[in-house]
């Protein structure tokens, strides 16, 4: 039996470099999904506050569907469904075969799930801002756009941050699901290593430790961002 250090080491013999590249893919997927999910979630929260009932209803339908479906099923539907449509379209048009990669499918599936949850976080944050803030800003003569950007948004971000950081943790953990459709992320590299070396406990244990490190680093960064958003408040 080879020693643990040589199994987890870097280089031709060890699997350390494979796990590290997998971890990078995991982080890249989560970071690539985040802006897309945040922007979409924010727009959805605006739609939910709109005076237009059709817009509100549409946003609610979106949330109901993507909050209710299991993430794995959403991923399968995106991966098999969109690829099926793309194949039919490219065959029909006589184009070379188009396909959505597992990374892109993961981005779409995790992004829509993230945005569905984020819209609710933003919505409750908007509701936590007293009406007087909007009225006061308007009384000072700020344009509606400036009221939003200078007065409302900074406060909304501050209130929404704990909820959003929860969602980020879920996103980071959900990236592991994309390994099922073949993305070479941390979990998939771990599975390969476990199968080849017949040391599943060691490798899955290592993967769990690496995920823990990622969530721990995230919570440090989030605490730092939270302090930054509260810099305007009097020190206690």
């Amino acid at each position: 039996m080879t020693s643990i250090t040589s199994l987890l080491g870097f280089g031709a013999e060890g699997w350390g470099d494979d796990l590290a590249s997998g971890a990078l893919v995991t982080i890249a997927l989560a970071l690539a999904t985040l802006p897309f999910g945040l922007v979409l979630g924010f727009l959805l929260s605006l739609a939910k506050q709109s005076e237009d009932w059709a817009l509100r209803l549409s946003a609610d339908i979106y949330t109901t569907i993507f909050r209710g479906l299991p993430e794995l099923l959403t991923l399968f539907i995106v991966y098999f469904g969109i690829n099926g449509l793309l194949k039919a379209a490219s065959d029909g048009a006589g184009l070379p075969a188009l396909a959505l990669s597992s990374f892109a499918s993961g981005m779409v599936a995790l992004g829509v799930v993230f945005s569905a949850f984020a819209s609710e976080v933003f919505l409750s944050a908007f509701r936590a801002i007293p009406k007087g803030q909007r009225e006061g800003a308007a009384a000072l003569g700020l344009r509606p756009r400036h009221v939003m950007v200078l007065v409302i948004l900074p406060q909304v971000l501050r209130v929404a941050l704990p909820g959003l950081s929860n969602l980020w943790m879920n996103l980071l953990k959900d990236t592991a699901l994309v390994s099922v459709v073949g993305l070479a992320d941390l979990l998939r590299q771990t599975q390969i290593a476990a199968r080849v070396t017949r040391e599943p406990f060691l490798f899955f244990g290592t993967a769990i430790v690496l995920y823990l490190v990622m969530t721990a680093v995230s919570s440090v960064v989030i605490a730092w961002i939270e302090r930054w958003t509260r810099r305007g408040e009097p020190a206690r």
Binding site: A176, P200, A207, I208
Partner: peptide, 20 residues
């Protein structure tokens, strides 16, 4: 430990890892 790691990784550790 259980809230900070993906459920799928926990499941694999138990199903494949314990087999060792």
């Amino acid at each position: 430990l259980f809230r900070g790691t993906p459920f799928i990784a926990q499941l694999f550790l138990i199903y494949y890892g314990f087999g060792q």
